[in-house]
Simulated assay, not measured.
Amino acid sequence: TESVLEDGRGAVFAALVWVVVAGAPGVVLCRLSHTLDAMWGDRNERFERFGGCAARIEDGLNYIPARLVALTYALLGKTRLALACWRKQAPLWDSPNAGPVMAAGAGALGVELGGPAVYHGELHERPRLGEGPMADADAIERGWNLVQRGVWLWVLLICVGAYLNA
């Protein structure tokens, strides 16, 4: 569920923002920064400077898109809970963009995300996001539906905006 909500932001919604803002070059820059961050961002000492730079660029390019996605998830789900989770829990997450997206998404779905997870063979205790039962397989499907409804909403808004500007 975390991956669906967060990858929706990074792979789909951010690209929509940047195609509107800067056309094809904006999408290429957005996707390139996302890929470089995923491959090398804050990963190890060998790529510390390159990876750190890639991560900061991706954070900067996605600051506004992440908040628009969090708002979208909130509007299309359990709005009050999503907004409360976003406000209270997003700052607890280590990523400035994943925190708002996953906290609002978890609240919108009425599930809890976070907790213990294994990364590179080590157990990490991550902050809890959302409220309700722990996310299960059904939450993945509901998360995917939330992303899809959000994409349709954004495409509609982009089309209306383009029509009004024509």
Rank of each mutant, 00 (worst) to 15 (best):
A104W: 00
P100A: 05
P100R: 02
G115M: 08
P133L: 09
A135F: 06
N97D: 10
P116H: 02
E131Y: 13
N97F: 07
V111P: 10
G105E: 03
P133R: 14
G121N: 07
V101T: 04
E131F: 11
M102L: 10
A98M: 11
M134E: 12
V111C: 11
P100E: 06
H124Q: 12
M134N: 12
P96H: 05
A98N: 13
P133K: 14
V118R: 08
A135W: 13
E131G: 10
A98L: 02
H124C: 06
V101W: 07
A106S: 13
P116D: 05
G130K: 12
H124F: 13
P133E: 15
D138F: 03
L113F: 03
E122I: 07
V101L: 08
G110R: 02
V111H: 10
M134D: 13
E125I: 14
A104Q: 03
P100W: 09
D138P: 09
A98R: 11
A103G: 06
D136M: 02
G99A: 02
M102G: 01
E125D: 15
V101E: 05
A117R: 14
P100F: 04
L109N: 01
L113C: 02
D138E: 15
A98I: 00
P100V: 03
P133H: 13
P127Q: 10
G105F: 00
G114L: 06
E112W: 00
E125L: 15
L129R: 12
G105Y: 07
N97I: 04
M102V: 00
A103S: 14
N97H: 09
R128S: 14
G114D: 08
G132L: 06
L123K: 12
H124I: 12
L113Q: 04
E125G: 02
A104L: 03
G130Q: 03
G99Y: 07
P133D: 15
P96K: 01
G110D: 01
R126H: 15
V118L: 07
A117L: 12
A108K: 06
R126P: 07
E112S: 15
G110T: 00
A104F: 00
D136E: 13
E131W: 12
G99D: 10
A106D: 05
P100S: 07
G110C: 05
G114Q: 06
L109A: 05
G107M: 00
G130C: 04
L113N: 02
P127E: 10
R128V: 13
S95Q: 04
A135L: 11
G132E: 06
D138Q: 14
M102D: 07
M102Y: 02
L109K: 01
V101H: 08
V101N: 05
G121T: 07
L129D: 01
A117Q: 13
A108F: 05
L123I: 09
G114F: 11
G121R: 01
L113Y: 10
G105Q: 05
E131Q: 15
A98S: 15
N97C: 05
L113R: 08
S95W: 05
A98T: 00
A117F: 01
G115K: 05
R126N: 14
Y119C: 10
G130R: 13
G115F: 11
M134T: 11
D138S: 13
A104T: 01
L129V: 08
M134G: 03
M134H: 13
E112L: 09
R128Q: 14
